[in-house]
């Protein structure tokens, strides 16, 4: 958790354009609710390993601990989830926990600012559950996400 986050994609995006688009854009988008810290930092594994069922336990820990969740859209873009139906706060919350690693179709407002995508999910139209069963390839990522019981 203390390692430097090298969010190259976000860096490029953040540098690409000045703040813009005060008004939101209504969009409906399908993608996976991801743990953004592990996805961008790369310290827990590559991008294919820190999503899906392989990373589900860690995603729960991170979401519960306050790491903002994102929606990894089918377009490959990450949308930082500011709010989501059912939760008042702008990060964490039961809905985010329940949807960790799930593929969902979300309807909401997209705000672009500082080159980043922010999403306020007004409705989870469809919850497809965990569809990326990559634990069959990667196991649990990282392995220590499931702690050994203390004697």
């Amino acid at each position: 958790m203390r390692q430097t986050v090298q969010a190259a994609t976000l860096l490029a995006a953040a540098l690409a354009a000045p703040a813009s688009a005060a008004e939101g854009e209504r969009i409906q988008i399908t993608g996976e609710i991801i743990d953004t810290w592990c996805y961008f930092s790369g310290v827990m594994g590559g991008p294919d390993a820190v999503v899906g069922s392989a990373h589900h336990t860690c995603a729960l820990w991170c979401s519960a601990g306050g790491i903002p969740v994102g929606l990894l859209g089918e377009d490959g873009e990450v949308y930082m989830v500011l709010k989501i139906e059912g939760d008042d706060e702008n990060a964490s919350g039961d809905t985010n926990l329940n949807l960790a690693s799930h593929e969902i179709t979300a309807d909401g407002m997209l705000y672009k600012r500082d080159g980043l995508n922010y999403l306020v999910v007004e409705q989870v139209v469809t919850d497809h559950g965990i569809t990326n069963l990559n634990h069959e390839d990667y196991g649990v990522v990282p392995g220590f996400a499931i702690p050994e019981p203390k004697p």
């Binding site: 986050v5 090298q6 969010a7 860096l11 953040a14 000045p18 930092s41 930082m80 980043l116």
Partner: peptide, 19 residues
């Protein structure tokens, strides 16, 4: 503005400097 805590320090600093 706001910054997600998943940005690299350089990326976050650039946003800060921009404002």
């Amino acid at each position: 503005t706001l910054l997600p805590p998943v940005l690299s320090p350089d990326a976050a600093a650039q946003i800060v400097a921009k404002y």
